[in-house]
């Protein structure tokens, strides 16, 4: 697969109870792009992410990853190339130790043992967590859990990284460390988040979802300065570009 692209054409998804999750979503994400997916609670962000690795299948429309349509037949290829980091690391770290967890993906992909060990240690080093490798996941702090969850995905060498609220529940320093780490990745990235300041730092492009539809898709900075659009989509300007809370002026420094 030479191009790590994502193409969605008129995606519709209706939950079994009849609620509409997605109402006709189309976009193209190019190789190496970093895209923020923002929207109020219930806008359809998580539903969309679930489509990207075939956990949910669109009721109408189609999705393709790197040119492969996401169908039952291509599921293995798609999951191999899309690394998904879940919102709650406890859902993702289910193995007895950190090492076992990071090795779970590569072992399932059938890599030889020596290569698995190498990949695991490399992934743990990338996120700065190699010292945790023998620890059981329930004994880690929130920041450590998140780092290990990312390593668990990196060890499969995915082309595309999909993250659901990566900065949620992190303390400011752990959040800062995460942002610095994500900046070093050259993968195609899709980050669903409420942390608009992080979105500004990491993503040149932003897609705004509202009630299962895309209300805006364009350069991040332009979207976050559009007060009317943000208000309509249940969002607020990122703190970084709001006026100073004490004097009310725009900080230029």
């Amino acid at each position: 697969m030479s191009h790590h692209t994502i193409d969605a054409k008129d995606l519709h998804y209706i939950y079994p109870d009849g609620t509409a999750g997605l109402n006709g979503i189309s976009f193209h994400i190019g190789h190496g792009e970093s895209v923020a997916l923002v929207g109020a609670n219930g806008a359809g962000k998580s539903t969309l992410l679930m489509h990207l690795n075939g956990c949910l299948t669109a009721t109408q429309g189609g999705l393709s990853i790197g040119g492969y349509p996401v169908t039952a037949k291509n599921l293995k290829i798609v999951r191999r190339s899309v690394g998904m980091v879940f919102q709650d690391p406890d859902d993702q770290l289910f193995m007895p130790t950190v090492f076992d967890d990071v090795a779970f993906g590569p072992l399932n992909l059938g890599f030889p043992v020596a290569e698995v060990e190498h990949k695991v240690m490399q992934a743990l080093e990338t996120v700065g967590a190699s010292h945790l490798c023998k620890r059981p996941p329930y004994k880690l702090s929130g920041g450590e859990k998140r780092a290990v969850a990312i390593a668990a995905v990196l060890s499969m060498s995915p082309d595309i990284l999909v993250m659901d609220e990566p900065s949620a529940n992190l303390d400011p320093r752990a959040r800062r460390r995460l942002i610095a780490l994500l900046k070093t990745f050259e993968h195609t990235k899709i980050i669903a988040t409420h942390d608009l300041d992080m979105a500004m730092e990491l993503c040149q492009r932003t897609i705004v979802l509202h009630q299962g539809m895309i209300t805006a898709d364009g350069p991040t900075i332009g979207i976050f300065q559009d007060d009317a659009l943000l208000a309509d989509s249940g969002l607020e300007k990122p703190l970084g570009i709001q006026n100073c809370p004490r004097c009310g002026n725009r900080c230029t420094g």
Binding site: M50, N53, C55, K76, R79, R80, V82, G83, M84, F86, D88, D90, D91, Q92, F94, M95, P96, F99, D100, A103, F104, G105, L107, N108, L109, V113, V116, E117, A152, V153, M156
Partner: peptide, 21 residues
């Protein structure tokens, strides 16, 4: 949670066998 864990497992290639080194 069980459902979310199952999805997380499927995303990393789970096919009914848990490999442990």
């Amino acid at each position: 949670r069980a459902q979310r864990i199952h999805i997380a497992m499927c995303c990393r290639g789970f096919e009914g066998h848990i490999p442990i080194l």
